[in-house]
């Protein structure tokens, strides 16, 4: 992945889950533990969306969760990126014909990276975060460009 010239800090991630089956969430937790240990890359789960650069969303998003998700997204500072983990957030997946889902997520908030799989492997999620990093690099450049 080349050198980051603009986005020069650790990546903080906020994880929101609504109407997932949990498998994706548990793989995200597995990322933090010794086998995958993403903290060695500076990637860290943040406790609040206000501290986060990346929003990781899992799940098909039930109706009453959609506005909560929108609010989380709005609370995040710019530049920000959104990653959808799992099929059910990407397209509805196995829950496509449910009467209670408001998803796919990209109809609720803008999405930058999709991770297909039900559930995807942890390596795929790391790869998605790296892609989001590149996106943030571009956004940061634009933001700085505007300042000049």
């Amino acid at each position: 992945m080349g050198k980051l010239t603009n986005f020069k800090r650790s990546l903080w991630v906020f994880h929101a889950s609504g109407g997932s089956c949990n498998a994706c969430d548990i793989e995200i937790v597995a990322l933090l533990t010794p086998r995958y240990d993403v903290e060695r890359f500076g990637i860290k789960l943040a406790g609040s969306p206000r501290h986060a650069d990346v929003l990781l969303v899992t799940g098909a998003i039930p109706r009453d969760f959609a506005d909560k998700l929108r609010r989380i997204y709005e609370q995040m500072p710019d530049p920000k990126a959104v990653i959808v983990v799992g099929n059910c957030g990407t397209s509805g997946g196995v829950f496509y014909d449910s009467y209670n889902i408001a998803g796919p997520i990209d109809e609720i908030i803008p999405v930058d990276v999709y991770v297909p799989g039900c559930p995807p492997r942890p390596e795929a999620i790391i790869d998605a975060v790296v892609k989001a990093w590149l996106k943030l690099e571009k956004l940061e450049k634009e933001l700085e460009g505007k300042k000049e």
Binding site: G18, G19, S20, G59, A60, P62, D64, F65, V94, F95, D97, S98, Y99, N100, I101
Partner: peptide
């Protein structure tokens, strides 16, 4: 809060799909 209506969906699909669900 995470209600997805799984039983309802299962009653519209065939048994093998419902097993997957």
């Amino acid at each position: 809060f995470a209600h997805r209506g799984i039983e309802y969906m299962g009653m519209k699909r065939n048994a093998i799909q419902t097993l997957y669900l």
